[in-house]
Nucleic acid binder design. Structure first.
Length: 139
DNA sequence: TCCTTGACTCAGA
DNA sequence: CTCTGAGCCAAGG
């Protein structure tokens, strides 16, 4: 429940994160960094810093994630589950496998196969967001 | 008040 | 491929 460095407006940021995660379809996964990339960085913050911090803020939002949000579809940029074993990591893997997602022998998910492409421009516009060219890459 | 501890990512070794 | 350290902040013990 501990919070990491918080974004300027944590509640607003969290709502945005949850709204985005709700768009991830069953059988697909996305990463903390990718979600952060769909949200504009705070004024004056370097994109490189935001790439790392934003991801942690997304993690913080997930820790406070309300019921109904498919939190299990958010994984680390390396394609691995970020939740520590014993804190639900096993459950997360089972939930994803139940959705048809395959983990390789090293416990990783192939993002080229299961990675989500994003909510689409229309959705982003409807929520006052825009695609950031320098952060949309999944790789 | 001090110290630990985070649902992260990337660059190096 | 695996393992570290840096980046840099706030809540709880």
């Amino acid at each position: 429940m501990t919070k990491f460095t918080s974004p300027p407006d944590r509640e607003y940021f969290n709502r945005l994160v949850w709204g985005i995660v709700n768009q991830v379809p069953e059988g697909k996964v996305t990463t903390y960094g990718f979600i952060a990339g769909l949200i504009p960085p705070p004024p004056g913050m370097e994109t490189s810093d935001y790439r790392a911090w934003g991801a942690r803020w997304v993690g913080g939002a997930m820790a406070a994630c309300p019921a109904g949000v498919p939190w299990q579809r958010v994984i680390g940029a390396q394609g691995k589950i970020s939740l520590r074993p014993g804190s639900g990591g096993i459950r997360q893997r089972e939930m994803l496998e139940a959705e048809g997602i395959y983990f390789d022998e090293r416990g990783k998910i192939n993002l080229d196969t299961y990675g989500w492409n994003g909510p689409g421009e229309e959705w982003l516009r409807a929520h006052g967001l825009i695609i950031q060219d320098d952060m949309t890459g999944v790789s």
